[in-house]
């Protein structure tokens, strides 16, 4: 009996030993393969991340949101995000602030690539939601201007936060800086901040000329006319002569020179224009 028991125990041990060996060999084999291929994977991964902002997840929260949806939905992200945006529009028409905000976060989490979601989302937060909150608090007539501005400022800050998040996915995008400037100007009534944002927008590749013009215009409104003049005189030679805004910039320069009383001999004289084939964006830096 003791012999059979000993045989049975040794059989169990052999079985366990064999299974443990199989597990160790499998894990060890895969780990060695991974280690051997790491030299190849690391540069590939670094290059892929540099190209795809959606893969650069700074925080654990972003990893749990964008990372998981990116990993699991893959190419279906676009269509899922589009249908979520449709749903958001239905909720938006009902003026449901909490649900709209939630769906907005969801859309940009599912697919952070399209600018459309970020820009329109920021507009909804800054302008529509402000109107909803004012209506909910009793209406435009019941609230004082201070109260309305306070609500507007709160929403504007939330919208700017959304745009800042968008900039982590779309670094160097002029449209996001312009949207930020618009909100700072029209909702926060902060011309200095808006002027700075228009300047940053102009520094981004492919920025429209009006961003630079608006920067100068806001400087003028802030009383920084000399600064505005210097800005425009530096801007004008960078613009192609056939562009619509070039003539407008020159007329603004003349206006500022008149307002500042610049002597005729010191007025701006347009030099050679930008050579054909070179864009304003290339020459501005």
């Amino acid at each position: 009996m003791w012999g059979r028991l000993a045989d049975s125990r040794s059989s169990v041990f052999a079985n366990v030993k064999s299974r443990l060996l199989a597990i160790f060999v499998t894990l060890g084999g895969l780990a060695l393969t991974g280690a051997a291929l790491r030299w190849m994977e690391a540069p590939l991964w670094a290059a892929l991340r540099a190209e795809q902002p959606a893969l650069r997840l700074g925080s654990a929260g972003a990893a749990a949101g964008q990372g998981v949806t990116l990993g699991l939905l893959g190419g279906f992200r676009a269509i899922v995000a589009d249908f979520t945006w449709l749903r958001l529009h239905v909720i938006w028409e009902q003026r449901d602030l909490a649900a709209t905000d939630t769906l907005l976060r969801l859309v940009t989490t599912i697919d952070p690539r399209p600018l459309y979601f970020w820009v329109n989302g920021a507009r909804i937060i800054a302008f529509d939601m402000t109107a909803w909150r004012i209506a909910e608090a009793g209406g435009h007539d019941l609230l004082s201007a201070v109260q309305r501005d306070r609500l507007g400022a709160e929403q504007a800050r939330l919208a700017i936060r959304l745009l800042e998040e968008a900039m982590t996915f779309h670094p160097g995008n002029a449209a996001l800086w312009i949207e930020r400037a618009n909100i700072e100007l029209n909702r926060l009534r902060d011309s200095a901040a808006a002027a700075e944002s228009y300047r940053k927008a102009w520094e981004q590749p492919g920025a429209p000329t009006y961003a630079a013009r608006l920067h100068a215009e806001l400087l003028r409104r802030l009383g920084r006319k000399a600064e505005a003049l210097v800005w425009l005189t530096r801007l004008h030679p960078q613009l192609p002569p056939e562009e619509e805004g070039t003539e407008l910039v020159l007329s603004r320069i003349r206006d500022l020179e008149r307002e500042l009383g610049v002597p005729v001999m010191q007025t701006y004289r347009p030099a050679a224009s930008v050579p054909s084939g070179q864009s304003a964006g290339e020459s501005r830096k």
Binding site: G74, G75, F76, A78, I79, W85, D111, P114, F117
Partner: peptide
Amino acid sequence: SLREFNFGASELKFLADLGYGAMAF
């Protein structure tokens, strides 16, 4: 027929996304 629901990306990118998404899934 689904491209009517596309808001964000360009149309060709949307179609490519959907195609490769279907292939992967």
